[in-house]
Design a protein around this nucleic acid. Sequence first.
DNA 1: TATGAGTGGTTACCCGGTTCAGAGAGGGAG
DNA 2: CTCCCTCTCTGAACCGGGTAACCACTCATA
Lengths: 336, 336
Amino acid sequence: MKRPTIADIATRAGVSKVAVSYALNGQPGVSEATRAKIIAIAEEIGWRPNSAARALNGARANCVGLALCRPARILGVEPFFMELISGIEGVLADRSYALLLQVVTSHQQESEVYRRWWGESRIDGVFLVDLHSCDARVAELERLGMPVVVIGHPSESGRLSAVWSDDGQAVRETVGYLVALGHRRIARVAGLPALVHTAVRDRAFAEACAGVAEHATVHTDYTGEEGARATRRLLSSPDRPTAIIYDNDIMAVAGLSVAQEMRVEVPGDLSIVAWDDSPLSQVVRPPLTALTRDIPAYGAHAAQRLLALIAGESVPPYEDQAAVLTPRGSTGPAPS
Amino acid sequence: MKRPTIADIATRAGVSKVAVSYALNGQPGVSEATRAKIIAIAEEIGWRPNSAARALNGARANCVGLALCRPARILGVEPFFMELISGIEGVLADRSYALLLQVVTSHQQESEVYRRWWGESRIDGVFLVDLHSCDARVAELERLGMPVVVIGHPSESGRLSAVWSDDGQAVRETVGYLVALGHRRIARVAGLPALVHTAVRDRAFAEACAGVAEHATVHTDYTGEEGARATRRLLSSPDRPTAIIYDNDIMAVAGLSVAQEMRVEVPGDLSIVAWDDSPLSQVVRPPLTALTRDIPAYGAHAAQRLLALIAGESVPPYEDQAAVLTPRGSTGPAPS
DNA sequence: TATGAGTGGTTACCCGGTTCAGAGAGGGAG
DNA sequence: CTCCCTCTCTGAACCGGGTAACCACTCATA
């Protein structure tokens, strides 16, 4: 029942374990006949290299880490992370890299997890997500000297490599589209204000609206409840907006329901745009106009960069495609 | 920049590395004064035990695995797995266990991942999810002799420990509730037919309806599109159902939209029940009656059992609480 | 005074794979 | 026949910890 080791193979093949090591790693130093025999025996007894023993010789751990700092109820509802992970996995699996995952409740705990993983030689690098402004995690990771790919805006990523997409561009496109439809009062139901990408969107939204439309931004925690509450407040104001942009689709769906409950027609009286186009956007009536992004591809790009970084290559910041607007039934001309 | 080892600490403290090992592991064999000095030095230079070196001594890897065999687009939309992972993480984090995650595309690939992880001594055990009938993975994992907790029905889990909840009970409760409301034609939009829990629900549904209501089951792949298509077909039939039970909430929301699009009133003409009560159920109008389960707790129980199994304890199958019906606005009396 | 039991530490070796220096065997050139 | 080189393979050391066995010393007991 014990797992076979190269010593077992060596005994069977009648050679030293060094010869086995060379043979199995494709290194010179053994004849082709011996190599073939050794490989045959290894396959027969189902030998696998012990990752711990390899790691001990300074080899890579063949593993990268990801820590998520969000409460369970938000993580579950946001398809973003699962899609991101799927994309990351696709790249890692090809190179037999594993992904170590941890859900944490604070940035402090998150930094501690990085220190532990790195100190224990468990991982070769990490992804850093959900960047805050003046993020202490960036300094911590720079200090550790570990390969890191930041999935987020490079303005706050310090000397760490970033993979990002231009949310500002997506906001400008959306506002331009809504203004062209005649909207002059546009609101935004935004996510957590501490996140860098929220700030980027906030700024781009204010700039894009400046001079062409009244604008208001309400911050939430990404949950449907807060999205609903924000919508209710916006729609209750005397000069209510004729269009609302939501930072995720669960809030957009909640907003749509609030509008229907308040007898506000969508898209007749109110246009709705959702960020991050998950299947959810398409199953409600009317289907939601959404900012579409290939999230698995985004994760895949980040994973490629992290592996390159681990291999010692230098990795400049990579700008992924910006989200593009996919118009559906939830947007239309502004009411006259 | 090199990571400190116990040898470094030993040099600094002027003792042998064995003394350091004893001191840091809380073992007897060193004086309290020496122990304190060693611990102080270890903290000062930020020492962490190298996980590879520990694992090499036959110690645990302090890591468990989870392989998910679902396409990315379904994984993203199902809050189930993220909530399950959150629950698992909560327990693992307390014991400094890590979770190794891999998304695979076939059961064969999944078994290969298990073999590799186990052969490489990367993990101490795994969770097995999405059981099929006559699942080859069960035999494979039994053969490997690795600690496993099956998250699913024990009827198909062989000699492996299972953590499960009685979906049959939930189905009976739901059907009873609908029948009490006067419904006599009930349909079910089910998930993948190959999954054991789908089969369990199918059987319970047929039995619960037998003699009291006409019933029909349509299988889908869990996506909103298929949920919508199934609903459209069901509502187009001459003797259309007055109630539909959906196997997840994205399909239920899609079904709700289809009903509205076909001018079928919910709950006036049609009652809708969703399985797995995510926040999504509550943000649509009307809010969905749902089968509620504490999924993070479910994951936590599974994690506790897996850790017990790894510790060498014997773990009987554990039946978690069945999902309970949470009535909301989407169900009502059958139309007369 | 010899014996025994704790302390507090050490030396030696193990885990499984990698790496380095070098040892024989065989072959070709001089 | 010797010299040298290449090919194939081996012993020993190493990575960073864990553990068994043992040793030197102190103090209490027979």
